[in-house]
Nucleic acid binder design. Structure first.
Lengths: 311, 311
DNA sequence: CTTGAAACG
DNA sequence: CGTTGCAAG
């Protein structure tokens, strides 16, 4: 069932420009900061459209440096959210350097880490689970992709959960060619899994799919994350039978982003990108309850996203 | 005239170990932290031994990164101290990257900078003056030494002022050979100047001369800053007719240091080194008033030192 | 332990 | 702008 309304008008929350002082003469023509068009994530829907209550909650967060994120109290937010599975991207931390705050976390007895083998402090993903998966694998089964700690797959009784940190195409698109190879191989990997069981893919897919998925679509057509090639890669994934859960539920929702560059105060102006996704196999769509963007949670240049579903 | 007393006993200031809570049973044999033996710089002597009032105040400070030091309010301390000349070492900052807080400082209309030509953010010295020097030169006149921004010489009517950041011999003494060359060439440079006018040398000489000049003399005989070679280099400088002003005035004063490694809480335990000096030509000794170690000033792993003299 | 630059985002 | 490992001290 589609939710959502005519975007900006309905969901916009005006920034408060009134500081309580006497009014100052202003000319509307000058380059004043526009009141930012914010996005307020609606209340969680906790049952599927056929009325079954959600029994699986998954959170995904690109933490942009696990250690800094822990210092910024990211784990406090996680404890409040209390997901069944926590997926993290860009941990940038070798296993031996992990803070005890997270390695000792009793809420998640089952923890899985994958780091970059070559460069320390680069890339890296993690999956923390309340219940033990049937099995866990690392990488996508292709030597050339599996040295950067970009993918963990956990098998649960009724589905696979895949979390990934998709390679950034880089400034000047220096790594776009590699990215295209990754996109193709990764899609093949997912299709292989899907033949065995339905899957949930989550993580930082490093692409804003359509113009609605970023603020400045005009200016970014030649930039990493919004090139035609990357967008088509995502389209092909959907054409293979997977669904972008957030866009499915909120097809018209603009201004809903999960990433803002630290530069130029982008986050306060909500100049962002939707780069983080829950992508679902067709067989799991009936159990979909909600796909959330927790854009109040701080601690990284990405915010967390949460999936609620019945499995 | 020699000042100072029998060192530790007289000048020691006991650290306060009492935190106001109820006493806890302790066994004196266990490895408790010893109360640190601190050093309290005595009140400034503001006239020479023949009764003339000081008319020249020079401060030297290894700031260990000018930009960080400015953020830590090092300039506030400088304004209080109000020297006629401020010499800085380890500025680690290209001229174009200097904070305006210092480039715009009206107290010092005459500012001179020397940075490393090869490696940005390495070495670098500066001299800021209230009155304009007759001339200023950079380096010590030898190509092989003059690319790292280690020396500025200013000519004043009655003396040369030389500030330097002497090359560190490095971990494992990897650069001790180079240091020996520097020491020899630098001494020759100073002797050349001295033939023209008496001089004041100040800065981070990167050597603790005698055992009294560092806390852990036993453990550091093979470490940069206290090798026989470096100590002898300094001895040769003194034998060339120059005087270590602080040691001249306070020949027995132990625990007086100008550097403490950031590691292992060395500063709070006063486990330090005296690496920063004012070294004077014989012709200036009659005007010497005081040579101070401002060990309360924070903002670097070195503290500032100040010279008071009549010129 | 702390600085700064470099790579990356 | 902000994270990381790195070199240097």
């Amino acid at each position: 069932m589609k939710r959502g309304k005519k975007a900006e008008a309905a969901e916009a929350v005006e920034g408060d420009d009134d500081n309580g002082t006497a009014p100052v003469k202003k000319t509307k023509k000058s380059k004043e900061p526009e009141a930012p068009i914010l996005y307020e994530d609606p209340p969680d829907v906790t049952s599927s459209s056929d009325g079954r209550p959600a029994n699986m909650k998954i959170t995904s967060w690109n933490v942009d440096g696990l250690r800094a994120w822990v210092k910024k109290k990211g784990l406090d937010w996680v404890r409040d959210e209390s997901p069944d599975v926590l997926c993290l991207q860009e941990t940038k931390c070798a296993e031996r350097s992990l803070p005890v705050d997270i390695t000792s976390m009793p809420e998640f007895p089952h923890k899985f880490w994958s780091g970059s083998e070559e460069k320390e402090g680069y890339s890296g993903v993690a999956m923390l689970c309340k219940t033990e998966p049937l099995s866990v694998t690392y990488g996508i089964g292709k030597e050339e992709h599996d040295k950067e700690g970009r993918c963990i797959t956990a098998e649960f009784p009724s589905f696979f959960l895949v979390t990934t940190y998709v390679p950034n195409s880089g400034k000047g698109l220096v790594r776009l060619d590699y990215r295209k190879t990754w996109d193709e191989d990764f899609r093949a990997y997912l299709q292989g899994l899907e033949e065995r069981k339905p899957l949930v893919l989550c993580g930082d897919l490093n692409v804003a799919h359509e113009e609605i998925d970023l603020k400045n679509s005009k200016g970014n057509k030649k930039n990493a994350g919004f090139t035609t090639e990357e967008r088509e890669g995502f389209t092909q994934l959907l054409e293979a039978g997977f669904t972008d859960s957030f866009r499915h539920l909120y097809p018209e929702q603009a201004n809903a982003y999960s990433f803002w560059t630290y530069m130029m105060n982008s986050r306060s102006k909500n100049v962002g990108w939707r780069l983080d996704y829950f992508v679902l196999s067709a067989g799991l769509m009936a159990g979909l309850c909600d796909s959330k963007i927790r854009n109040q949670a701080m601690g990284s240049d990405h915010c967390p996203i949460t999936l609620l579903m019945v499995v």
